[in-house]
Design a protein around this nucleic acid. Structure first.
Lengths: 207, 207
DNA sequence: TCGCTAATGTACGAAACGGTACATACATTG
DNA sequence: CAATGTATGTACCGTTTCGTACATTAGCGA
């Protein structure tokens, strides 16, 4: 192969392909040989850069989780009324999930393994907190004005939104099959997006 | 081994152990040797009764999905007011999910593989419908009396409830870790159970 | 009780798989 | 432009893993 060296490209190419394969086949189902074959480099580089299959998976997890911070960055709904802000947050979260199916599937894979790998990634120790901050602020404003109910916290709301969004991506195969609803279809997507907003707003504004 | 023969016991023992291992390790992660070792029989029997690893997994899937019909059986909320019935259905679904974590995890595994195996199980062709029937009836009554909103169908509601319940079990590892909330703790469970009811009722009764 | 079939056990094979030893080419720097 | 460390390629090894050939036993019906 007559190809100029580019450590960064090799590394990121491995990471990209690995992300795809791990999310499609699971951790045990993924084959290092297959990952290597789909890149312009060789298996040897996986061991050179990531130490092995598990190291590669950890790197994939870290990169994927880091991308979720993008979402939090875009969640600046400070100038909206609490009710509108809540709906907006829900919709943005929805969009983020359907636009990053690989990430959601990786999370599923990691949960099958009971978060064993996640715990090994130092940089992900305290990733959760930020996600709840924006919600926290909106909920506080809503409580003060009496528009939003007071018996739930930001994590409760975040969990509700997450569960709905994760389900859209992670369980579309079985649910879609058993109930004959193609969850990838744009109009279905749009419907579910609207419904999610209705759910959160209906719930939080209920007397 | 001086042990009387019992085809049925051998079969069901393999099925039980396989259910546990597949749900803990995923399809590729599960080892036929390990499954066999944990039973009182040998690997040979897996091939005798199920034809192979995949056949065993299909049998596990089928058995697990069939158990979900139990839930539908217990969902006879016909004598309750629509709002109470909805909350009751949500709570029963919640209980069913947390009481059958293996099944939920299997569904996750199957979704990783995009429902490839599920489609091969003839008996699961049209399993979904029944789950929506009870909801359908309650929604109809609620719409008639004006208590429940009219812009959603039974599948919408079922999906919302399912997503919340599935998340409790399937994503407890990563979510619990990142947000420092032990989702297996009884008091947390109880809180989430109540919240689920609030969500569904709040949503469906919103003006 | 005799024979036949369903059920079970043992030992092994072939391929897949993760990982590594060793050689080497590129590029940067002094 | 020589020297040195980074980056890459090749070939191979040991183990694991699914699957099977072959032998054997238990129990049921004739």
């Amino acid at each position: 192969m007559v190809q100029s060296r580019d450590a960064e490209r090799t590394r990121s190419e491995l990471l990209d392909v690995a992300t795809e394969i791990f999310s499609e086949q699971g951790y045990s189902g993924a084959r290092v040989d297959e990952i290597a074959e789909r890149t312009r480099t060789t298996k040897r580089m996986i061991y050179y850069y990531f130490g092995g299959k598990e190291g590669l998976f950890l790197a994939v997890l870290e990169a994927a989780y880091r991308r979720i911070r993008e979402l939090e960055q875009s969640l600046h709904a400070g100038d909206l009324e609490p009710v509108d802000a809540i709906r907006r947050i829900a919709e943005l979260t929805f969009d983020h999930h359907v636009n990053h199916p690989d990430f959601i599937r990786l999370v599923s894979v990691e949960n099958i393994h009971r978060g064993r790998h996640l715990e090994k990634v130092e940089s992900l120790r305290e990733l959760g907190a930020p996600a709840a901050t924006v919600l926290d602020e909106v909920l506080a404003r809503g409580r003060a004005s009496g528009e939003l109910r007071a018996d739930v916290d930001a994590i409760d709301v975040h969990m509700m939104i997450s569960s709905y969004c994760v389900f859209q991506v992670a369980n579309s195969a079985t649910f879609g099959y058993l109930f004959g609803r193609d969850m990838l279809a744009p109009d279905v997507r749009e419907r579910h997006r609207r419904i999610l907003g209705d759910i959160v707003v209906g719930w939080l504004t209920a007397r």
